[in-house]
Design a protein around this nucleic acid. Structure first.
Length: 436
RNA sequence: GCGGAAGUACCCAAGUGGCCGAAGGGGCUCCCCUGCUAAGGGAGUAGACGUCUAAACCGCGUGCGAGGGUUCAAAUCCCUCCUUCCGCGCCA
């Protein structure tokens, strides 16, 4: 959400931004917002004048009522004033309804107007125009054939999708034995990696109220992603970012504690509406997965530096697991409405001989902060909206695909990267095992 | 889940319809006094949001857990919800 003042002062900038995001159908919203804003302020002004009058007269009535005990004529005066105040009551009630209506209509419109994107964001209509910025590590194609990841996992007795379908439907999994252990090893390693970078480890709620959902994501994302608990004002989180940012609702953060650099663990639940391609079977796109996340809440002028740091942490982590990656920058049309700038870290798939998304790093600017009222008080006493960022450290089910494929040996075993071995009881490789 | 109590500013806390946007402490800030001190005295201390404004000050409005209602007028009366505490029950 952007500042209404920006629309008042510079509507053309806002329109230009909408065009850059190829959302021309939203252009009329700018005028709608201006109109509602004007009407809203007019209603506020008239209503507060009436309230001021009422307050004043009511005070006089109070005094007259007091005096009426000695002097009965004062009671008549009081009655006269009462009817005067009452006469304004209807108009005030009308204005109050208008105020509420304009306010909520304006908010609804403002929620649809996209965040102003960073000037550095490449312009393009959709994800086909995303830009590869840089590669890290050598993307190798082995001599031997690399099987589909579910087949690899089955080789080590590590997955049962059939039973998961019976129990919860497609999009769920049982991980078993060393694969399950490797999954947890990756999470534990990622957690410690971020703690080593000075981040604070946190485990947030896995459910949240509707108002938090609205604060952290756009309506379209919400419809496509979120599971609601029946009969309760509760949603399952789609990522720990949701409840981690929600934690800051209505907070006035002491400036000296900034930046807040946090790393959170949570399971994530997503509807993943619609059907997906043959390459998204197995544990690639699922309704439930686990993720280690990084969250930063910082001063506005620092958010771009943090953005750079955050995606580099992802690269560093994947490189420490011998997985080649690349940075892919989101173009304007592919950028979610709340985001100022965003990029994906993609891991190399030797089987597909292409990169696939494993991390998503975003600078939300003040968009979430304005929706959720997340502010900080500076040393000079002034109050500003904070900036929020998030990035994946690692989401193990999906990243295991890259891990298994890139560390596959010719003999069919999988090398366990050294950094993970302490979390695997010292084990150096995965070997054939029967499924249980 | 059942029963009971409570939510007032940074903290504690008074306040049951009208000069209450809110007594009194503590804390904090500033000042004064004093050389032996975790002493005494004085002053200040509702922030925030909205509106007005070129902007700021001022003014006005909102604001006593949240949302409704009654009333000329609500911290105060009524309703709903949330949270916390104490019992009982249940459960990792």
């Amino acid at each position: 959400m952007i500042d209404i003042k920006l629309i008042r002062e510079n509507p053309d900038l806002v329109r230009e931004n909408i065009k850059k995001k190829f959302q021309d159908q939203k252009l009329p919203l700018v005028d709608t917002a201006l109109e509602l804003d004007r009407a809203n302020r007019a209603a506020i002004n008239e209503a507060s004048e009436l309230r001021a009058r009422r307050n004043q007269l009511s005070k006089q009535i109070g005094m007259l009522m007091g005096q009426a005990k000695k002097d009965p004529t004062k009671a008549e005066e009081a009655e006269k004033l009462k009817s005067e105040v009452k006469a304004d009551g209807d108009r005030l009630a009308e204005l109050e309804v208008l105020e509420d209506r304009y306010k909520s209509e304006l908010r609804a419109v403002m929620m649809q107007i996209p965040q102003i994107i960073d000037p550095s964001v490449p312009i393009g209509p959709d994800d086909s125009h995303n830009v590869e910025v840089q590669r890290f590590g050598e993307a190798k194609v082995p001599e031997f054939e690399v099987p589909y990841h579910t087949e690899l996992m089955e080789r080590f007795g590590g997955i049962d999708l059939d039973a998961a379908r019976d129990v919860a439907g497609s999009g769920f999994y049982y991980l078993i034995g060393d694969i399950a252990r490797l999954h947890e090893a990756v999470l534990a390693y990622a957690r410690d990696f971020m703690i080593g970078k000075g981040f604070t480890y946190m485990i947030p709620p896995f459910m949240m109220h509707g108002n938090i959902v609205e604060g952290v994501m756009s309506q379209t994302d919400m419809d496509a992603m979120m599971y609601k608990i029946e009969g309760e004002d509760l949603y399952l989180i789609g990522t720990s970012e949701h409840s981690m940012i929600g934690r800051y609702i209505n907070r006035l953060i002491p400036a000296e504690t900034l930046p807040h650099t946090l790393t959170s663990y949570s399971p994530c639940f997503r509807k993943e509406k619609g059907s997906h391609g043959i390459e998204e079977r197995g544990v690639y796109r699922i309704h439930q997965f686990e993720k280690q996340e990084m969250i930063v809440v910082c001063r506005p002028e620092e958010s771009m530096d943090w953005y750079e740091k955050l995606w580099r942490y992802s690269v560093e982590l994947f490189r420490s697991l011998d997985i080649p990656v690349r940075q892919l920058e989101c173009c304007s049309g592919d950028l979610a409405d709340l985001k100022v700038k965003s990029c994906d870290i993609e891991a190399w798939s030797p089987r597909q001989q292409k990169f696939f998304e494993v991390c998503s790093c975003s600078n939300l600017g003040d968009a979430q902060a304005r929706r959720l009222n997340i502010r900080f008080k500076d040393a000079d006493g002034k109050i500003y909206l904070a900036h929020t960022l998030n990035n994946t450290v690692v989401a193990p089910p999906r990243m295991l695909i890259a891990l298994l494929e890139n560390n596959l040996n010719a003999d069919g075993t999988v090398k366990i990267p050294e950094v993970l071995r302490p979390y695997m009881g010292g084990k150096e490789k995965l070997e054939k095992a029967p499924a249980v």
